[in-house]
């Protein structure tokens, strides 16, 4: 995918001439800016980027990137992106979706892209609400949430997107936050570098319909006590004073205070490649009084779908020879009439 001859690109090369139509202050602006900033560093020539989105505020994203872009239909971006990638595996394909687009109407498409492991990067903007349609509860809205479509509180148990992705055998699962620009950029880069389908959840503030949904990880006063910044190979320490840690009691994670009875050696060490650990981390919730993991929760190397496809075609050619269309049309069960 890298192109040595590609001219040096800058952020400006990725800014389209269209007016951005998000509400002032929406978290989407930062995600857009960080993406535009990160793309030039990937060493990919501009015409090879394709941004495919479904429907939602988040899904308007492709219009603002000066790349190939397709604002498709609700929930169907993974299907269309798969086609784009298979038609030309040399492209850098990005799926932009929301919690509604990707997990409600498009849940089915999403899981099959994840398990197939095409080298596509999925960025799911999670604002725990349907923004575009003016504030209905989404599959990530918390239980009991009162919205226009749930006046007495939602009865749905919410999805935790990384758990959904892991359940669908995703080979790369990460989480970041719109307002943490450095972390967001680094996460986009990691998602790009992963060979296979990457699933990046971005906590995104919808200040109109769900303001402050992620204040526990964005509010300066409390965030350090609530964020578990995952670093591969390092013990899980967090807290303003870096005095808290995660320890396993059987299969259950618990927060411990480092110092008195617990030393750093007792803490869980993050291993990106450990699926069981990933499953535990992905399920961390505030309700369980656990911090919110940010960073790469899981990554694993698996063959890419498009590589397997190419291999299969090559192997078939080797065995059966180059295809012959005339022969294919004739089939095996035909005969000549004289």
């Amino acid at each position: 995918m890298t192109n040595a001859a590609a001219p040096t690109l800058t952020k400006k090369d990725f800014v389209s001439d269209q007016d951005v139509r998000w509400c002032p202050g929406c978290g989407d602006y930062s995600i857009l800016a960080q993406t535009q900033k990160t793309m030039p560093d990937l060493g990919v020539s501009k015409e090879k980027f394709v941004f495919v989105a479904g429907i939602g505020c988040s899904s308007r994203f492709p219009y603002y990137m000066d790349t190939f872009g397709f604002h498709t239909i609700h929930g169907r971006a993974p299907a269309i992106a798969s086609g784009v990638k298979l038609a030309n595996p040399d492209l850098s394909v990005w799926v932009i979706t929301g919690d509604g687009d990707g997990l409600s109407i498009g849940g089915n498409h999403l899981i099959h892209l994840l398990r197939r492991n095409l080298d596509i990067n999925i960025v799911l903007f999670n604002n725990e609400i349907y923004g575009l349609t003016k504030g209905q509860y989404s599959p990530t809205s918390e239980f009991g949430k009162k919205t226009k479509s749930s006046p007495f509180g939602s009865l749905d148990r919410p999805f935790t997107p990384p758990s959904v992705a892991l359940g669908a055998q995703s080979t790369f699962v990460a989480r970041t936050v719109d307002s943490n620009t450095a972390h967001l950029q680094a996460s986009l880069k990691r998602a790009y570098e992963h060979q296979g389908t990457s699933f990046l959840e971005v906590y995104q503030n919808c200040l109109i319909y769900n303001d402050g949904a992620f204040s526990h990880v964005t509010d300066k006063a409390v965030k350090d006590d609530n964020i578990l910044d995952l670093k591969h190979g390092e013990p899980m320490v967090f807290g303003k004073e870096a005095d808290k840690g995660i320890r396993l009691d059987g299969f259950t994670a618990e927060v411990v205070t480092v110092g008195k009875d617990v030393s750093a050696d007792d803490l869980l060490v993050h291993d990106e490649h450990d699926q069981n650990l990933a499953a535990i981390l992905a399920n961390f919730t505030e309700d369980d009084l656990l911090p919110t993991p940010l960073g790469v929760i899981y990554s694993e190397e698996q063959p890419k779908y498009e590589a397997l496809m190419t291999e299969q075609i090559e192997a078939a050619k080797e065995k059966l020879g180059e295809g012959d269309l005339q022969q294919l049309i004739a089939g095996t069960d035909t005969w000549e009439v004289t």
Binding site: S16, Q18, S45, K46, E47, K48, F49, V50, A53, I55, P62, Y63, M65, D66, T67, F68, G69, F70, H71, T72, I73, V84, A87, N88, D90, L91
Partner: peptide
Amino acid sequence: IPGMSGLEHRIGGLEREHISGN
């Protein structure tokens, strides 16, 4: 189609402007 240099553009389900496609 994607990959053609200099022809980057966006399409989608919203009504397009005649010619420009915006």
